[in-house]
Design a protein around this nucleic acid. Structure first.
Lengths: 143, 143
DNA sequence: ATCAAATCAGATATTTTTATCTGATTAAAG
DNA sequence: CTTTAATCAGATAAAAATATCTGATTTGAT
């Protein structure tokens, strides 16, 4: 049973949205993120580390350390998080799992699937973390 | 890294499409399906068994036994295979992984994601195995 | 200086998915 | 009636995804 993105990726998107929503110059600890978003602490910690490695967020160690966005929220898109965690393979591999699936050797749903995939990609590319800030605040307040 | 459907589901869709394309009253063995579609024999065998349990295909044992569609290809849709194998949870769970995600407590991408998901669902619902028969034949001939 | 609170890296554990093995059963054909 | 080619059920194995543990390091505050 699949749900588009891996748990890691879902958590990563939640976390980075939370960072953007929560941000007022202060650093946010993995512990806080874990508690608010109900993600296992050590797991979200690893995910945050990988997002840092990808350059989307930055971290500082020691007491009162934590995480923050590495660049303006307006310059971070959902697709960046997907690319960093799940990769973009899903956007150019065959939905029916055929090895080669191209315009010259299309799978049976190649043409109907294509536009849907493109729309999905475009959506993830146009949604910046910044644009989603208000909605994230609302969502968080209901957790 | 996710690709929408599980391997099982991809293989299941390929196999049922193959059955429809291949069908001229004859039964098709798991071995043939495995070879043509390059799916591990015992694995596709299990998948075929589960599709039989779901009532989409039927099987007969013994020499010259094999599998065939359990009903007219025009009455089998891709969504039936997805429902049988991966389940339909992906069509009503939150794409960002939030526990509750509803119009009253929407996740940040609830409204942009909704239409895309609906379109995807509709596509899988309108594509019958029968309609995809010709395209499947073309695809098979290139394997 | 010591303590406390945090990240960090690497190892380990658990669960799920993917794949294979074993042997039983069935049924057509020689 | 024996052989052969197939499904079938259940167990097992291997790989990947998810989650946890351990202890080291960093850094601000007491």
């Amino acid at each position: 049973m699949t749900v588009i993105f891996s748990k890691k990726c879902e958590y990563g998107m939640q976390a980075i949205l939370y960072l953007a929503a929560r941000e007022k110059g202060t650093l946010v600890s993995a512990d806080e993120i874990s508690k608010v978003l109900k993600i296992p602490r050590e797991f979200v910690s690893k995910i945050l580390q990988s997002l840092r490695d990808s350059g989307l967020i930055s971290s500082s160690k020691g007491k009162s350390g934590g995480f923050s966005l590495a660049k303006p929220a307006s310059r971070i898109k959902l697709i960046d998080v997907v690319a960093a965690i799940d990769g973009l393979e899903m956007f150019d591999s065959c939905v029916l799992g055929f090895q080669e699936c191209s315009p010259t050797h299309p799978c049976p749903v190649h043409n109907t699937w294509g536009p849907l995939r493109t729309q999905t990609y475009d959506m993830l590319t146009s949604e910046t973390i910044d644009k989603l800030k208000e909605k994230t605040l609302h969502k968080i307040s209901s957790l």
